[in-house]
C-alpha cells in the first residue's frame, strides 16, 4: 500500500538521536475489549527486557495523542468498526513498517463483529433507546461518537497487514513469540497451538 519513504521529516533524525538503536514500537486499540493489551501487560518481567530494546511511541497505555511517523512495528488490537478506526488504520499503515493484527478481533472481527447482523440504525436504537437504563431521547447528534460503518471488518480487509497473532486474547507466550521474532527482524512463525483462534 503506502511506502515508508513518505513523510520523512527532520523530526525523525531528532527522535532517532534520543533513542539510538531502539526499535520504535506502537500498539493501537480499535474495536476491541482491550483484553489483548491486558495480555500484553501479562508479559510481566519480559516487559523489562522489552523496554531495553524498544521505545513505545504510541499506545493506549502511553499518553500520546497523535500516531507518530516512522514506526517500526505496530500491534493493532480490535476490529475496524467506525470511521475513526478507518482513519487510524490508514494512518498506521502509512507510518509503520510492519503492521500486525493483534488478537482475534483484528484478525477475524470476532466478538466485535457480532453486531454485523443488524443494520446500524437498528443497532443504535436497540442499544441506546431500548436498552436498559435512562437514555437521552431524540437522537440528536452529540458530535462525539464516531459514525459506525455498516459492518465491522477485520483489519486486513481495510489495510495491508504483515502478520497475524490470533487468540482471544493471545496468551503472553504467543505475544512474546511473535514480538521477539518481529524485533529480531525475523518472520513471525507461530506453532500450531499458538495459531489457534479463540
Amino acid at each position: 500500500m503506502t511506502t515508508l519513504a513518505t513523510k520523512k521529516t527532520a523530526r525523525k533524525a531528532e527522535k532517532a538521536e534520543a533513542a539510538v538503536g531502539k526499535i520504535r514500537l506502537a500498539t493501537a486499540w480499535l474495536g476491541g475489549c482491550s483484553g489483548c493489551h491486558m495480555s500484553f501487560l501479562d508479559l510481566d518481567e519480559k516487559l523489562i527486557d522489552l523496554a531495553e530494546t524498544v521505545e513505545l511511541v504510541y499506545s493506549p497505555i502511553a499518553d500520546v495523542k497523535e500516531f507518530p511517523h516512522n514506526v517500526d512495528v505496530t500491534l493493532v488490537e480490535g476490529a475496524v468498526a467506525n470511521v475513526d478506526h478507518l482513519e487510524l488504520a490508514e494512518k498506521i499503515r502509512q507510518r509503520s513498517k510492519l503492521v500486525v493484527s493483534f488478537g482475534d478481533c483484528a484478525v477475524t472481527g470476532n466478538v466485535t463483529s457480532l453486531r454485523n447482523k443488524f443494520p446500524v440504525e437498528d443497532l443504535l436504537t436497540r442499544v441506546y433507546h431500548e436498552g436498559p437504563g435512562a437514555v437521552p431521547r431524540g437522537g440528536e447528534t452529540d458530535k462525539i461518537v464516531p459514525a459506525l460503518i455498516p459492518r465491522v471488518l477485520p483489519l486486513h480487509q481495510v489495510i495491508e497487514v504483515d502478520a497475524f497473532i490470533p487468540g482471544c486474547p493471545p496468551d503472553p507466550e504467543r505475544i512474546w513469540a511473535a514480538v521477539s521474532a518481529l524485533l529480531a527482524g525475523e518472520p513471525v512463525v507461530l506453532t500450531e497451538k499458538m495459531r489457534m483462534f479463540g
Binding site: 470511521v83 490508514e90 437522537g139 447528534t141 461518537v145 464516531p146 460503518i149 455498516p150 459492518r151
Partner: peptide, 19 residues
Amino acid sequence: MEALPRRIRELGTIPMSLA
C-alpha cells in the same frame, strides 16, 4: 474517506461497500 460522515447520526450515507 474524505466524503464519509464523521460523527454518529450526521447526515450522509456510508456506502455499503464498506460491508
